[in-house]
Write a protein that binds this DNA or RNA. Structure first.
Length: 561
RNA sequence: CGGGGCGUAGCUCAGCCCGGCUAGAGCGCUUGGUUUGGGACCAAGAAGUCGCAGGUUCGAAUCCUGUCGCCCCGACCA
């Protein structure tokens, strides 16, 4: 492709709207342009990369027996009402104004609709159906460039099986395909497993890329591979030491002390000598949750421990329940259920609220004074704590979710009546799995992992071109003739070549554009070297430059690419 | 939806607080010329309903009200 005839609008300056690196680079390198919040147009160079990503996905999906579909983006609302998902999606679902249609945010309903009746026998199963298609979600706040858009390309796959054993097989196949896809795309990623108890033992795994631009927080152990969403991640943190002697309980006047920080300052004590109290309402009954020092209650873990409905108590409710307002609540003589974080186990000589405004109690020995207390893991794992599995150090960081595989079960088959006959002639619901990959997210994550201060650093197989051929002074006949020949020859050799044949652009301008666009190899053709029958080969990643004989160019390129 | 910021030329931004001539700069773009190994130089030029609507005023990019859009933080994320 000739630069002089291509639409590759590169930008010198950092666009106002872009904040994260991948977004900045996409816009600066002329890969994408924004149309509206969360809505992007892919420009030719960017779309070339999108197609390469899609090709890889398609190959790996076909390799596990997937059959490619193209389902409509426009769906009858009625089908979505039958599964209750018009309500479940709420404002996220786009509605068409002048007909009873919705824009599909995913396609479980449509898969189930087509499977119904058409798959009538166990002999028709299993099936793997997939598509690579545009999805629509009315995100309340699109952000981070193409990472969270209102319209995006998704590979979504669905398995149809007779039973859970079949589903296990389909799920494992997708796990394998996903690893192959992300490996081939050259991404550094990891897999977060989460067994969601509420779904009846259903399994789900998320494929994540570490990035500050991410929306999920995960805890990850490099050594053993333990990875979990921070909401559920477990860690080993030091218990507070049990002191030999427990003091007696004593009450202290603490006027205007409402937080752990204020209490520590007021009494000149360490945070680890205090226990913070929070009151929740669990199935209409109050419950006191005790945390060490300033640790926050992890409400996801709390919910998992308690089951049922859990919500923080309203400020107005606190006094009636405990006798005090927030800041003075504590476990001593608290008349309802008390649970505490594991770190407080065996704690003594602790300070906490007195259930009387402006008073705290010291000398609390939890074993002695709060004997009915139950202990659970209720805190959020923090960076640097020990891995629950292997004991080495946990990393807690932000991550981008690239893909998600999970076992659906019979939710949609039941709702839509998607049944088949088994060997015994008995009707059974088809067991489904659902598997998604964000195509643009692969793109963005690749950029997040492959750039420097000059621009993008592409590598096979996603690079839009293999070679960036740069004619330094195209008005010089020797240079232009040599470039034209190289362009033809390299293409004939099977390389994808971007040819900067611009007449006017100066050398420096072309170099900087080439570094920004980031093709793996730059082939620089200038008068000086050409006089000696040589050209310069530059490795974009290492910056290494070699002046080589034209006659040896082919073998050198073969080594490099 | 809550909090914050921004909307002036293709891009980045100044001007706005304190209203006043034909609304500016840099980059980019066009034409001519000189250049061509790390974002060249000279000369001439094109380009903006100052987001939109209403109001105040002799006069509004500037003040007021409303509205739309975009970005960031939070909430949300099947």
């Amino acid at each position: 492709m000739r630069v002089s005839r291509s639409f590759i609008p590169t930008l010198k300056e950092v666009p106002n709207d872009a904040v994260i690196q991948s977004h900045i680079l996409m816009i600066r390198a002329g890969l994408v342009r924004q149309l509206s919040a969360g809505i992007y147009s892919w420009l030719p160079l960017g779309y070339k990369v999108i197609r390469k990503i899609i090709d890889i996905i398609r190959e790996e999906m076909n390799a596990i027996g997937g059959q490619e579909f193209h389902f409509p983006g426009l769906n009858p609302k009625e089908i979505w009402e039958q599964t209750g998902r018009v309500e479940a999606f709420g404002d996220i679902l786009f509605h068409i104004k002048n007909r009873e249609y919705v824009l599909a945010p995913t396609h479980e309903e449509i898969v189930a609709y087509h499977a119904k009746g058409a798959i009538a026998s166990y002999k028709d199963l299993p099936q793997i159906w997939y598509q690579i298609q545009t999805k629509f979600r009315n995100e309340p706040r699109p952000r981070s460039g193409v990472i969270r858009g209102r319209q995006f390309i998704m590979k979504d796959a669905y398995t149809l099986d007779r039973d859970d054993a079949g589903l296990d097989v389909g799920y494992a196949l997708h796990d394998k395909a996903y690893r192959a896809i992300f490996d081939r795309c050259g991404l550094r990623y990891f897999v977060v497993g989460a067994s969601s108890g509420a779904m009846g033992g259903s399994k789900s795994e998320e494929f994540m890329v570490k990035s500050d631009a991410g929306e999920d927080t995960v805890a990850y152990c490099e050594k053993c591979g333990y990875a979990a969403n921070a909401e559920v991640a477990q860690s080993v943190a030091a218990l507070i030491p049990h002191q030999k002697e427990s003091k007696k309980l004593f009450e202290i006047s603490t006027p205007n002390v409402h937080s752990i920080d204020e209490l520590c300052t007021f009494l000149k004590i360490d945070e680890h000598e205090t226990a913070k109290s929070r009151i929740y309402i669990h199935d209409a009954k109050p419950i006191l949750v005790l945390m060490l020092g300033n640790d926050e209650v992890n409400e996801t873990k709390l919910g998992n421990v308690l089951g049922g409905n859990v919500r923080p108590a309203h400020p107005e409710e606190l006094k009636e329940i405990s006798g005090a307002d927030a800041g003075s609540i504590g476990p001593i003589d608290f008349p309802h259920r008390i649970i505490a974080d594991n770190l407080l186990k065996d704690g003594n000589n602790l300070y906490s609220g007195a259930n009387k405004n402006d008073f705290h109690i010291g000398g609390i020995d939890l074993r002695r004074d709060v004997s009915k207390c139950e202990y659970f893991d209720l805190r959020t794992a923090e960076n640097g704590e020990k891995c629950i599995r292997c004991g080495s150090t946990l990393d807690v960081f932000k991550a981008i979710e690239l893909g998600h595989i999970f076992k659906l079960g019979t939710k949609y088959s039941d709702a839509l009546g998607v049944l088949y006959l088994d060997e015994n002639g008995k009707e059974r619901p088809i067991v489904m799995g659902s598997y998604g990959i964000g195509v643009e997210r692969i793109f963005a994550c690749f950029l997040e992992q492959n750039y420097d201060e000059k621009g993008i650093i592409w590598k096979k197989p996603l690079n839009p071109f293999d070679i960036h051929l740069i004619g330094l002074n195209m008005k010089n006949e020797m240079v232009s003739k040599a470039c034209e020949k190289l362009y033809i020859d390299l293409i004939a050799e099977g390389y994808e070549v971007l040819f900067d044949d611009r007449l006017e652009a100066s050398a420096g301008f072309k170099f900087n554009d080439a570094d920004l666009l980031g093709m793996p190899i730059q082939l620089i053709v200038g008068e000086k070297n050409l006089k000696d029958g040589k050209v310069e080969v530059k490795n974009r990643k290492t910056g290494e430059k070699k002046v080589v004989e034209l006659t040896q160019l082919n073998s050198i390129l073969k080594e490099l690419i």
